[in-house]
């Protein structure tokens, strides 16, 4: 009996490890996109602490609100409120955000975020046209990877400055004003109200102008460069800062790694450390989106694996690698 169960467990494990990750991910992302962009029409409401870009400006369709929007609003409360009763609301909001986040870790980015999915769709579109993709290259990558942390810091400091009376309320939710999610995601429900410039104040004009310009950059950027925007995303920075206790983990066994570079080649985020670092066990870096393409592309048994609360759920195997190779799945990476 137990032998039988053992056999069926190993069958399931084998099937999981042989999964066609590319199509699994496509359908998962597609479903999540529909849920978060149109779920509101079905009265789905998952609250306002969602740890990815389920944009709050998509008023009709959203099934939950991206945490960055209420966070910026809450932090802009007058200090005397913020450091008393309203502070509790900030902590509760953060607590909920943390609870959502802790389950999937950055898997929210690789599998759920509508803006991330949109970038993947633009990549597929580019592939169809046969146009070459671009890469940041190692130097710019290293030079620019702090941008998301600066954006995160500004996103917190500016609202605090509003609450303290230093900045005008016209700078409210400053990141949202420049976020491409605000401009692009409501368009999916036919809401064009975010395509405007706000002439009511200089700061409003500058921020909404930047927002529109960045939205234009976003469309071309993500068409040419995989996950162009995620590299600068402050949500990703926030994720990374609190990722330690998360349940979903990307693990690497450096001992068995042959540094073949497959994982790096398929990584949309150009994370060199995934191939180069053979010391760290926790392989998730600040830019990682936990898309798991590296696991699918690794030919060494058990070198890269995904764990949920310590339980192995998906790992690299030779068989899985060969299966996916033969299908061409997951191997749309860059070569150097």
């Amino acid at each position: 009996m137990s032998e039988c169960r053992g056999r069926s467990t190993s069958r399931i494990r084998r099937a999981v490890n042989n999964v066609d990750l590319q199509s699994f991910r496509f359908w998962f992302q597609f479903t999540a996109f529909v849920l978060f962009v149109y779920g509101g029409y079905l009265a789905i409401d998952l609250g306002n602490s969602i740890p990815m870009f389920s944009c709050g400006y998509n008023r009709e369709g959203r099934a939950g609100v991206c945490y960055l929007l209420p966070l910026q609003h809450q932090l802009a409360r007058p200090w005397e409120q913020l450091f008393s009763a309203a502070g509790i609301a900030v902590l509760t909001g953060f607590g909920l955000f943390f609870l959502w986040f802790i389950v999937l870790n950055k898997g929210w980015c690789g599998f759920m975020c509508p803006l991330g999915t949109l970038q993947d769709w633009l990549t597929s579109l580019r592939k169809r046209t046969g146009i070459r993709y671009s890469l940041y290259g190692e130097k710019p990558f290293n030079a620019l990877s702090w941008v998301k942390f600066v954006l995160l810091a500004l996103m917190i400091l500016i609202p605090l400055g509003i609450g303290g009376g230093w900045f005008s309320h016209d700078m409210g939710a400053p990141f949202c004003q420049i976020c491409p999610g605000r401009v692009v995601l409501p368009l999916f429900t036919g809401d064009t109200t975010q395509l405007t410039l706000d002439f009511s104040s200089v700061s409003g004009l500058v921020l909404t102008g930047l927002g529109m310009f960045i939205a234009g950059m976003f469309l071309i950027g993500s068409f040419i460069k995989k996950r162009f925007f995620c590299f600068f995303c402050p949500m990703s920075a926030l994720h990374y800062l609190i990722a330690k206790p998360a349940l979903l983990k990307l693990k690497k066994d450096g001992e068995t790694c042959t540094k073949c570079g497959n994982c790096f080649n398929v990584c949309d985020m150009e994370i060199r450390a995934i191939a180069d670092d053979i010391v760290k066990k926790d392989a998730m870096t600040d830019d990682c989106t936990l898309c798991l393409k590296c696991v699918a592309a690794c030919p060494e048994p058990g070198t890269l694996k995904v764990e949920f609360a310590g339980l192995k759920i998906f790992e690299s195997t030779e068989e899985g690698f060969l299966k996916r190779m033969n299908k061409g799945a997951g191997c749309d990476g860059h070569s150097h």
Binding site: V183, A215, G216, G221
Partner: peptide, 9 residues
């Protein structure tokens, strides 16, 4: 401005 961003990039 959006088109400018698009064209610029």
């Amino acid at each position: 401005v959006g088109t400018a961003g698009l064209l610029f990039t």
